[in-house]
């Protein structure tokens, strides 16, 4: 095995297989947004604090700006685009709308992925558990009040 600066990788995103050649230095978020044109996941910082780029990698919640695309070779990725089926919002998405848990909507995709990860592990989280689950997702519009309410409602 030798180290390479460019590599062909295969990833599954929302059930679709993609094979692309990428620079080793390319961040996973840029691969998803720019190379695959899946622009639902966002970038809100450059230090891994804001969580707008959160995706599920083999079922685990990660920030896609904190890893390289080549690290995801062979992985299955879930992004916000995979939550609804055929245009029908899932329960969590609907709860976000019902409870006005989004204003500008920029943090929303990452927030939804964090909430998805939480609810898969814990179907009836407490308010404290919800806040802890989204502590890595910054929202500058809502003060989190309605986001917490929406996740509570979706859990029920």
């Amino acid at each position: 095995m030798e180290a390479v600066s460019r590599k062909t990788i295969t990833v599954g995103v929302n059930g679709e297989q993609y094979e692309r050649e990428v620079d080793a230095r390319r961040l996973l978020i840029h691969f998803i947004r720019d190379d695959l044109d899946l622009t639902g996941s966002h970038i809100g910082c450059d230090t891994g604090n804001c969580g707008a780029c959160s995706v599920l990698l083999d079922g685990t919640l990660v920030k896609s700006c904190m890893m390289l695309a080549v690290q995801a070779d062979g992985a299955k990725i879930e992004t916000v685009e995979g939550l609804a089926s055929e245009g029908e919002l899932n329960g969590l998405q609907q709860a976000f709308s019902d409870h006005h848990a989004l204003q500008c909507g920029y943090c929303t995709p990452g927030m939804l992925m964090s909430a998805t990860a939480l609810l898969r592990e814990n179907s009836s989280p407490s308010e404290e558990e919800i806040r802890k689950a989204i502590q890595g997702n910054i929202c500058r519009c809502t003060g989190y009040v309605n986001i917490v309410e929406a996740i509570k409602a979706a859990a029920q």
């Binding site: 095995m1 030798e2 180290a3 390479v4 600066s5 590599k7 620079d23 080793a24 230095r25 961040l27 840029h30 970038i43 450059d46 700006c65 390289l68 080549v70 690290q71 070779d73």
Partner: peptide, 17 residues
Amino acid sequence: MLLREVEYARPASVQEA
């Protein structure tokens, strides 16, 4: 956000690493 060029390898053993 944009890294300098880098090479990458993902070995399977400590010895290889």
